[in-house]
């Protein structure tokens, strides 16, 4: 439990560096499941693709413009984001190089498998369709931001 709290604090601290509004983060962290729009917003802001004053709708719209848009379009902005879609957006936005099938197909399932290979997700919870708790979104972004294997740093 202490480890989780520490990770959350670390992640919140990391996010605060991006300048995201506290209200938005508070609402995001209060939820049990991360939503698609806010998750894409945080990913886009962390990777420098959206300004700090953008909102969740901007994040969803940004997602619809990316090469993984077809997976975003299958969701509504308020839907829980799946583990696979989260890591697909995260890896794509940071240019993380993955395995051959991930590079060729780039589906949420392959992104989740990459996250498992990199050690970002415990094997016991590696299900690409599962919803993602808000703190896991923040820790995932922190992993990719700090991990030298995470592509463009």
């Amino acid at each position: 439990m202490k480890k989780i709290v520490f990770i959350v604090i670390l992640a919140v601290f990391a996010v605060s560096l991006w300048g995201q509004s506290n209200d938005l983060l508070d609402r995001f962290l209060d939820g049990e499941e991360a939503d698609v729009a806010t998750t894409l917003l945080l990913v886009a802001q962390a990777s420098g693709n959206l300004p700090m004053d953008a909102g969740p709708d901007d994040g969803y719209a940004w997602g619809l413009e990316q090469d993984f848009a077809k997976h975003v379009s299958k969701t509504a902005p308020g839907d829980p984001v799946s583990l696979g879609l989260f890591y697909l957006a995260l890896f794509k936005s940071y240019g993380v190089k993955g395995g051959g099938m991930y590079t060729a197909v780039g589906s949420p399932r392959y992104a989740a498998l990459e996250a498992g290979f990199l050690g970002y997700v415990e094997p016991s919870s590696l299900y690409h369709t599962r919803s993602v708790p808000p703190y896991e979104v923040l820790t995932g972004i922190t992993y990719v931001t700090e991990d030298a294997e995470g592509g463009e740093m």
Binding site: G98, G99, G100, M101, L113, E114
Partner: peptide, 10 residues
Amino acid sequence: SFFWRPKSDF
């Protein structure tokens, strides 16, 4: 023995 794993899936 030589082991090479250039990609996560290969």
